[in-house]
């Protein structure tokens, strides 16, 4: 499909085609296709169970697709050797939802780990680079603290500093503002915008916070029950005629079509006659 892209259009750094994913017998993603263009902030939204976290795990190459392809920086993840995959991973940064800072290391050691493992820099340079990134996320002077001594917002910012230490081309953020108060959450949004504007990083953010999504997104992808409901700009999303999307924007729960048999079955836990063949 990449041949179809017009030459004037900026290059796609992430291309997902027909991605299908199962968790045990349950189908999580039902043929998701998605392009992320260099330098944009793509926000992936959806309620719980919509498959957005699974999609993110596929983009980070933590899951293998049942079918379909995921290409990062024009490399097909399924065909990469271990070594090439490691090289590719140096070009992506991930800020996990809970921070995922290594609890046995100080904040500084956490941030320097990639440098320590992937580069031959001397310790002084590494420390300077770590402090530089801590300055970017407004955590200067905290490098000697342990992650357990940080507040929730500080952990998220430290995780962001760790994610950008190798100056990645793509930054993934999983729920960057979940569980934070509005002020801190807004500061994190500003940080994401600043990172993109300063170094032209491509950012993929998974969130369910509408406010934050509208503030930072260049384009928004809305996932629902494993399918893409919408891809487009914030303006297009706001004016979208679909009822499902308007329900999501106005935080209305969707009315499910009532199936009396299924309801009875759920309540009693036994098969109702006529449904036994299920």
């Amino acid at each position: 499909m990449s041949q179809a892209i017009a030459p004037s259009r900026p290059a796609s750094v992430i291309e997902v085609e027909d991605l299908v994913s199962y968790y045990g017998p349950r189908q999580i993603l039902r043929g998701v296709s998605l392009d992320v263009i260099e330098g944009e902030i793509m926000v992936i939204m959806g309620g719980s169970g919509s498959g957005k976290s699974t999609l993110l795990r596929h983009l980070m190459a933590l899951e293998r697709p049942s079918s379909g392809t995921v290409r990062l920086l024009e490399r097909d993840l399924a065909t990469l050797s271990v070594r090439d995959m490691n090289d590719l991973r140096k070009k992506i940064g991930v800020a996990f939802q809970g921070g995922a800072l290594f609890s046995s290391m100080t904040v500084g050691e956490n941030i320097m780990l990639s440098l320590h493992e992937h580069t031959e820099l001397d310790p002084t340079t590494m420390r300077i680079m770590a402090r530089l990134k801590l300055e970017v996320v407004d955590l200067a002077g905290f490098e000697d603290l342990m992650p357990s001594e940080l507040s929730g917002g500080m952990i998220k910012r430290a995780a962001m500093a760790r994610a950008i230490i190798m100056d990645p081309k793509i930054l993934f953020c999983d729920e960057p503002s979940a569980g934070l108060d509005p002020v801190v959450s807004s500061a994190i949004d500003d940080l994401i915008l600043r990172l993109r504007d300063a170094v032209g990083m491509t950012v993929v953010v998974v969130t369910h916070e509408l406010e934050s999504a509208f503030k930072i997104a260049d384009r928004i992808t809305v996932l629902d029950k494993g399918e893409i409901l919408f891809i487009g700009t914030v303006e297009e999303l706001r004016n979208h005629p679909s009822e499902r999307i308007q329900n999501l924007l106005n935080r209305r729960a969707e009315d499910e079509v009532m199936d009396a048999d299924a309801y009875l079955r759920r309540l009693t836990g036994i098969e109702v006659s006529g449904a036994a063949s299920l």
């Binding site: 980070m60 995959m85 140096k90 992506i92 290594f102 780990l113 493992e117």
Partner: peptide, 13 residues
């Protein structure tokens, strides 16, 4: 705590 995932995505086995 997703620290193992973090190692994976940092390219550290």
């Amino acid at each position: 705590n997703q620290e193992i995932d973090a190692l994976h995505v940092m390219g550290i086995n």
